[in-house]
């Protein structure tokens, strides 16, 4: 348990450093949800659906799964496809795989819509906006967390 806590301290500091490096190298804040908007924009070019689009975010996004893969290859040395969700499988998601996919899709829909509506996701608001002490971002991050916390608590109190 202690090693996990240490990893959290070191990992957290490194993630913050990465946010700073992103500013220095790319010249703008890191972000994940804008990459999705850029993807949608690439497919549906006719209308400008979003105020701002950022081609670099698309490349940042390409890197993300590569990082996940690198971690698996280095530390687990074996790659498996899985479809389980740990403790989440015990309740709502236990009924059937179809229901699980449907709930995950609806959850994703809310994430995508909400992130654009709020102007950023956990990365953009909590990490980048938090580091810059933007109070609207800090408020957004706190609300993200409070609502997710209340919902999770409700979900698990029914299981």
């Amino acid at each position: 348990m202690e090693s996990i806590t240490l990893a959290a301290w070191i990992g957290g500091s490194l993630i913050g450093t990465l946010i700073v490096l992103h500013f220095i190298i790319v010249g703008q804040g890191a972000g994940c949800s804008l990459g999705y908007a850029t993807m949608v924009h690439k497919v549906q070019k006719k209308k400008n659906l979003f105020g701002n689009i950022d081609p670099y975010k698309l490349f940042f996004m390409i890197g993300l799964p590569l990082g996940g893969l690198a971690h698996v290859l280095i530390f687990k040395q074996e790659f498996n496809f899985t479809f389980d969700m740990g403790d989440y499988d015990e309740f709502l998601y236990a009924a059937s795989n179809e229901l699980k996919i449907a709930v995950l899709f609806i959850g994703g829909l809310l994430l995508g819509f909400g992130a654009r509506m709020a102007g950023g996701c956990t990365t953009g608001h909590a990490l980048v906006g938090g580091a810059l002490l933007r109070w609207s971002s800090i408020l957004a991050a706190l609300l993200f967390f409070a609502i997710a916390m209340a919902t999770t608590w409700l979900l698990f109190s029914f299981s």
Binding site: C32, S33, G107, F145, A148
Partner: peptide, 17 residues
């Protein structure tokens, strides 16, 4: 937006990243 995002975060236990 934060309400929608928070609900999505809880249901999927993941964020866009």
């Amino acid at each position: 937006g934060t309400v929608a995002f928070g609900l999505g975060w809880a249901l999927t236990a993941s964020c866009p990243g």
